[in-house]
Amino acid sequence: MRSLLLLGCLAIGLAACDDTGASLQITGTRAHRAVDKRVVVEVDLLASESLGGNIGTYCTRVTFAGQAAPAEQCSADLEDGDTKTVRLVSESDRIFDGAPITVRVRHGNVDVGSTLAAPR
């Protein structure tokens, strides 16, 4: 039984040292039209890093249907537990209602995303 107790302690210790990764997830996306008819996309992000540090560089990219180049913003300002709302605006005001908008967030080797429709 004593060895079982020691084994339990060892397992807890190993589990505590096992995960030191950083991650970034999308918690929400919204789109609306500005006064000048351009489409504004807001992306909510949540950062986590098991040791409490900075998660490093990440890029948020929004691709509008009908626009040649995507809008992109890269930063390295998030630490463990931080949330951020990234706002990206289309270059053109000719994004049709309901046109697909693709949101991608790249952090390290991980690329997460979601899709939404252009608002009226």
Partner: peptide, 10 residues
């Protein structure tokens, strides 16, 4: 008790 920093769109 904790701190959760939020960076707004602006």
């Amino acid at each position: 008790v904790g701190r959760q920093r939020h960076i707004g769109p602006t």
